[in-house]
Simulated scan of single mutants.
Amino acid sequence: MSTAANTRPLATDPLAPAALARLDAVQRGLRGGPAPPGLSVAVVVADLDPAAFLGGAADFALAIPEVLRDGWYRAFTRTVFLAGRPASVAPRHAYRHATPTADLAWYGPAPRRELAPLSRLLRAFRGPAPVEVPAGPLTVPVTGRPTGRVVDVSLATAGVSTGAYLVHVHHLISEAVLRGLVRPGDTLSVAHADTLDVTDFPAVLDPARAASVQTRITPGDTDPDRLRLYGVLTPTRDEGGR
């Protein structure tokens, strides 16, 4: 499912139950009750370092004020990625969060009209296709006092452009943070693979476990009539293996 789609996937697709569970969770919101006005986020990208991006996305989402969280969550964590140098943009548009190297900066959550001047100033970030990621696993600490909790993150990259990678990863990490699955001081253990096979995640994709896992499922780029698993996040263990 796309981030803003209200269409429901075909029940015959093996990924449909997990996709529907995520759709239903977003529609219920973080606290239930009437939906607040939808909010958006913009990210200015000078260069993509996957580890910095993953950590920055988590740190940004953790710092969002409580009053803004549900509006962004119920808008399917809607985000645009813009090409630019945050240090050059900051004098005219102050960001909410930036990575230590200032290669990435986050704006919002805010109504779309408030982010429109930034979108008019900068073009969409593209990057190489397919996305370039490290061959080995990544260990990404989330800012905060270390908790000892390890959050496993699996990401699919075959046929995924840099722009699509930004979208998939940002939705996965942001929603997990807003739902409390990633906390300050956790460690993200990140593995990239060409594809994520549904048969490798039978328990994780069980809708009965939807409250304790985060998935990124959306129509594939090459076959939009079929769902593809782009990301799985499971806060499963501490560093002692328990």
Results as ranks from 00 to 15, higher is better:
G220S: 14
P235Q: 07
E175H: 11
V232A: 03
L39Q: 09
H192C: 03
T101Q: 11
P130A: 05
R92C: 03
V150F: 08
P14R: 06
L54R: 11
L121Y: 01
S2L: 14
S174A: 15
P14C: 07
A176V: 09
G144I: 14
P219R: 11
L181V: 09
D59K: 03
G231M: 05
V67A: 15
P91S: 02
V198Y: 09
P146L: 14
E175L: 05
G29D: 07
V26C: 00
A16T: 10
A51W: 08
A83C: 05
A35I: 02
H168K: 07
L54K: 02
F76I: 06
V151D: 07
V160F: 08
D103P: 03
A176E: 07
G127H: 05
A158D: 15
L205H: 13
V167F: 09
P91R: 01
A5Y: 07
A164G: 06
E66N: 09
V160D: 10
D206L: 05
V142I: 14
R226L: 13
F60E: 08
V169A: 14
S189L: 07
D223P: 00
A124M: 05
T99P: 05
F201R: 11
G136Y: 06
R183S: 06
R8S: 01
T79Q: 06
G84Q: 03
H93A: 00
A208Q: 11
A75H: 15
A83L: 02
D103E: 09
G163R: 12
S119M: 15
Q214K: 03
L30M: 09
T12P: 03
H171Q: 14
L196D: 13
T234W: 07
L138G: 03
Y107W: 02
R145S: 15
A58S: 14
A110C: 03
D221K: 04
R112I: 08
T101F: 01
T99N: 04
E132I: 14
A210H: 12
P207D: 06
L233C: 06
L54S: 10
L122F: 01
L205S: 08
A208D: 13
V167P: 00
A35L: 06
G108S: 04
R92G: 04
T143H: 14
R78K: 08
A42Y: 01
P14S: 10
V26H: 02
S161H: 11
P100C: 04
V182W: 11
S2A: 09
R28Q: 11
V41Y: 01
L39G: 11
L104F: 00
P109W: 04
P91A: 04
L20V: 15
P141Y: 09
N6G: 05
P34K: 12
I64L: 05
S189H: 12
Y95Q: 03
T12M: 12
G32E: 07
W106E: 00
L227G: 08
A42N: 08
R22T: 12
A19K: 04
G231H: 04
R228M: 10
R149E: 15
L15A: 07
Y230E: 09
A102W: 00
A58F: 10
R226I: 02
T77S: 10
L115P: 01
H171S: 13
P91I: 01
E132K: 13
A19D: 08
H93S: 01
R179Y: 12
T79R: 07
A42P: 05
P184G: 02
A176L: 10
R216G: 01
R149W: 15
A19Q: 06
R149A: 14
L54I: 14
V140I: 06
V89F: 01
G71L: 08
G159M: 12
H93T: 00
G38Y: 14
